[in-house]
Design a protein around this nucleic acid. Structure first.
Lengths: 120, 120
DNA sequence: ATGGGTGTGTAGTAAATACTACACACATGC
DNA sequence: GCATGTGTGTAGTATTTACTACACACCCAT
C-alpha cells in the first residue's frame, strides 16, 4: 500500500502547488477566502488540529479545486447529502452498499453508467 | 405523508408491544441488558434526550429485534461500516448514491439482486 | 404495611467538536 | 529601516455528544 496521505498533508501540497504561480494561494489568503483564521488553517495543514467541519472542507475544496467528496473522505467524513439519501431508505441503501463493498471499481462504474443512461 | 414517527416513539412502541407477553421487556430490564441507566432510556423513549450513540442503538436493535440500519436512520445516523465503505472509494460511491437518489425502490432492489446473484 | 418492581425528575460530568483572537518571528521589497 | 506579508505559537471558548448517579413517587402482591 502507498503510505496513506493525511488530510493536512494533502491540503498543504495542493495549496503549495498553486502558490508558485498565483500569490493568491498563500495560507492567509486562502484562509480569508474560506472564512477561517490563518492560524487555524496552519494547524490543520500540519495535522496539528483535526480536520474542520463539512462547511469549511467544502469551501477549501472550492478554493483549491479539489473534489469535495475526496476531501471529506480524507477527513474521515461523508457528505451530509449522501447521508440523507441513505437515511431516507436505510435498508435499501445499506444492502446495496454492503453488496458493492468488494466489487472492483469497473463493475461499480458500469452500474453507475447503466443507471445514468437509463436502460431502466 | 404519514406523520413522521420519532426515534423515541418507535422505541417505546416496540418495547411496549413486547412487555405484555414478556415481563423482561420493562424499561428497566431492557436498559440493564443494553447497559445504560433506566432514566436515560426513559428520556430517550420520550424524546426528551437526543438518541444515543451507535453502540447503544445497536444493542437496542438486538434487544428489540429491530433493524439496526432503520433504527440508526431514525436517529439521524448512518452505520459506521457503511461510512467506511463510502470513504474507501468516495467518488465512486458518491456518484452512485446520487444517481440512485430518485430511483424507485424496485429498480434499486433489482440492482441489489443482480449484483448478489453475480451476473457479473 | 412493606418489599420489590415500575417509570421519571434532577443534577451533574467527561470528552469531543469546531472553532476565535491575538501576538510573535522571519523575510522581502521599496 | 519600515511596512507589508508570511507562517506559526499560545491560550482560550461555545456547543454538542453521550452519557451516569441517585432520589422520588407510584403500584401491587404478600
Amino acid at each position: 500500500m502507498p503510505k496513506p496521505i493525511t488530510f493536512g498533508q494533502f491540503l498543504r501540497e495542493s495549496r503549495e502547488s498553486k502558490v508558485a504561480a498565483d500569490r493568491g494561494f498563500s495560507l492567509r489568503k486562502v484562509a480569508e477566502r474560506v472564512g477561517i483564521e490563518p492560524s487555524y488553517l496552519s494547524k490543520i495543514e500540519r495535522d496539528e488540529q483535526p480536520p474542520p467541519g463539512e462547511g469549511v472542507i467544502r469551501q477549501l475544496a472550492v478554493e483549491l479545486s479539489e473534489d469535495p467528496d475526496v476531501l471529506l473522505a480524507m477527513a474521515g467524513k461523508v457528505s451530509s447529502d449522501l447521508l440523507a439519501i441513505i437515511r431516507s431508505r436505510p435498508r435499501l441503501f445499506a444492502d446495496l452498499i454492503r453488496q458493492l463493498k468488494n466489487l472492483p471499481d469497473h463493475a461499480v462504474l458500469r452500474l453507475v453508467r447503466e443507471v445514468r443512461d437509463g436502460s431502466w
